[in-house]
């Protein structure tokens, strides 16, 4: 499957990465090269193979429905680049 400049721009948009126009070609080249490596997977027949999404087969554990956290607002807001009146502050969001 071939990668084009449009693919790179589309993917960059999905990934919310600002890629300057002069870097697009570089991505086309590198991603194509890497995907070329991946295309060798296609030669392997995998019919009937169960996909594996976890390294170890286990059941999902669950926790009891208990409140354990105390208010961490100030600690967490202290990590933020911009806050106001107890909120994380961002540029105006236009719906």
């Amino acid at each position: 499957m071939s990668i084009t400049a449009d693919t790179v721009k589309h993917v960059a948009n999905l990934a919310r990465l600002d890629i300057p126009a002069d870097e697009v070609e570089g991505y086309v080249e590198q991603l194509s090269q890497i995907l070329g490596l991946m295309d060798q997977l296609n030669s392997l027949p995998t019919d009937g193979v169960e996909p594996m999404s976890h390294a170890v087969e286990m059941l999902m554990p669950a926790r009891e429905d208990v409140v354990v956290n105390s208010d961490a607002r100030d600690l967490l807001l202290a990590c933020a680049p911009d806050t106001e009146d107890g909120h994380f502050r961002v540029p105006k969001i236009i719906e």
């Binding site: 669950a62 926790r63 009891e64 956290n69 208010d71 961490a72 967490l76 990590c79 009146d85 107890g86």
Partner: peptide, 21 residues
């Protein structure tokens, strides 16, 4: 606002979800 949050729900680095039974 933001008084009912912890690193997990606030999506901080390295934290993990554990399901409520």
């Amino acid at each position: 606002a933001n008084t009912q949050i912890c690193p997990v729900c606030a999506g901080f680095p390295g934290v993990l979800p554990v399901m409520n039974r």
